[in-house]
Design a protein around this nucleic acid. Structure first.
Lengths: 201, 201, 201, 201
DNA sequence: GATGAATGAGCCTTCATTCAT
DNA sequence: GATGAATGAAGGCTCATTCAT
């Protein structure tokens, strides 16, 4: 008699998510067939649909994982440390992810899919809002410490920081010469100057 | 005997491009069927394919038009005027377009499509490179005039300005609270601070 | 320039309905694939779905045609003739149809399908109600003429006559020895005795 | 060491048959998945297929049970009693079953399935033939007693009585206003008049 | 130039059944 | 006996594009 093993279940789901992620990054979400995902995951279609209700559900799981990871990143921050530095470190971390071709392409694919899949859009919008809130929190702290221009609205400033991050992934798609490794310091620079306390408008 | 009338031809193509643009903005590129475009354009499929070889060719024409418009915008600039101001005005113009829901959604759809359609990607990359070159030219002039931090690399700085623009459209998709009207001054601010001469790193 | 030709359209639909009817009678509704219908109709799937939105829509069209035919049959009756005889003639007509193997099997298939397809069920129920109403009308006339037991409720009596008709098709499915040709007079007899004026309960 | 316990085995089969019957009545035979039957029976698919070789085998068992029950009904009749009355009582019993929504829908589902499943068709045809034979036997006895028109062929008359019964279930599917409770006396009436000794054709 | 009927390859998903544990 | 994960064939339908008129 075998009981349902949630760990095994989760492992299978992970396996599928990874296989799907590779396929999506390689060929795009729409161009990827479930058959391809099955092949990549070494699994029959019947079995794949045992773990996910639909192709879309796989993306949703990927998005959710990403959201959770980002949330965990911010939750782990030491609130007593240098908050501006913490924000800039986050940007470095983003650039490190962006340097991974597969990750970058997958991020783009998912964003594109969110354009037309309302479920994914809603989910991504939620994660996005959460990230903006986390950044705004850092900004508020940094303002209190005098590290950041107190004349800025934290939420609005966070929006523009996230816009820059989105822009990075767009650059990766449009400009073959855009090298994340080389550009990481520039992202710090752009954000630093934007936030700098004592700036005159 | 009637000769081929290139103007009439061009008018029909425009009619199709507009119909397709509306459909793409409304339902997305992939979800839009050629039948829908035909209906919106008041035209039979046989006829539509008389003017465009493929659905993709319609997008390519739209992208090309956009590219030409942007190129014309920069070509029309008075080189002897305030170049930094010219750049910031360009950003305002972008935000004005972004305020148009249909335009914004269409831009997003096309960017998403470029993700997987190599022809469109190549074409957009070319337009993108051109825009960066135009911005870099402005920056170089503004640097010569001492308006912009001469320590920046013009091409690299242009990249980040374009990244911000891309980010704006991403914001429109992800954040329902992002209001182009209200955010236009912020875009000026972010770019101004980034470029400001005399900034210390 | 070709205009939509409604006759040609209707002819195609008929062609498909006949092909589908043959397939359904031969293999059953569920076992029949759209590919089989296409093959039987000499047509590509794309084209078939140009004329019918779904496999189910084909059955609906068949049912509708049947309903219209039956309605036309009753509408064409001479109201001044012998109404009881008209009813019994109708029963003979039904038995003549039942003698056609393909028709009989198709009728059964459709009835079975109505069991689980609500759209078809509704439609068949409507046709059924109409037929019962038509029969009840005949009965009322025949009662006025003293040909039919006036103690019967016309609608209720009509129900039982229709039940017998349904029962005939059931017999054809269950009893290989049930020969419509031979049984036609029996149907007249059962109904005649049931309706006979002057019967004592 | 545990021996195979046939009673336990039989109980499990019954449990499955009942669960399946409920599902079939609720959603139809084809629409019911084995997974649903498993859920209703509180059982894993592996286990279910341990007791029945196939989904079809479950229906076959249900049909067989029904056949046996009907056979038992006739076997239990007192041959010395009023045979016409016995027949009419049987009809009342049928109507009582028909009044049970679940039973009625299940009967219909199974009849529909018999349309396309040869194994079930054969089996139902056998039960049907048996019932007709039982009714014919009653009729022969009733003829001998002068209760039934001796001019009728017993087998043929039985066929038409069974046709009426089938028709009742058809009515239940097609006519929401058909109330078994109310119609039971009518079935008696139709059959009585049909069989009545001394009838003139 | 214009029409709309015709094509056909391809995809997501279902589900009865089997099998390893 | 019991579990539930795994299988894989099959099917309805879509839609960009072509072609006869």
């Amino acid at each position: 008699m075998r009981k349902i093993d949630p760990e095994r279940q989760q492992a299978k789901r992970r396996q599928i998510m990874e296989a799907a992620g590779n396929c999506f990054a390689r060929r795009g979400f729409h161009a990827t067939t479930t058959a391809e995902i099955c092949a990549e995951a070494g699994m029959s279609p019947g079995n794949l649909f045992h773990y996910f209700d639909s192709k879309s559900a796989i993306v949703e799981a990927i998005v959710e994982e990403e959201r959770a990871d980002t949330a965990a990143y911010f939750a782990a921050l030491d609130e007593s440390s240098d908050l501006l530095e913490a924000l800039l470190d986050f940007l470095d971390a983003v650039m490190a992810f962006a340097a991974d071709k597969t990750y970058a392409r997958l991020a783009l694919e998912i964003a594109a899919e969110a354009t037309r899949n309302p479920a994914i859009n809603t989910q991504m919008a939620a994660g996005d809002a959460q990230t903006r809130a986390d950044i705004a929190r850092l900004l508020r702290g940094a303002m209190a410490n005098g590290q950041v221009d107190a004349g800025l609205e934290p939420e609005q400033a966070a929006s523009w920081i996230v816009a820059l991050i989105d822009g990075v992934f767009s650059r990766l798609a449009m400009d073959p010469g855009f090298d994340p490794q080389r550009e990481a310091p520039m992202l710090r620079l752009v954000v630093s100057r934007f936030l700098k306390a004592g700036s005159a408008r």
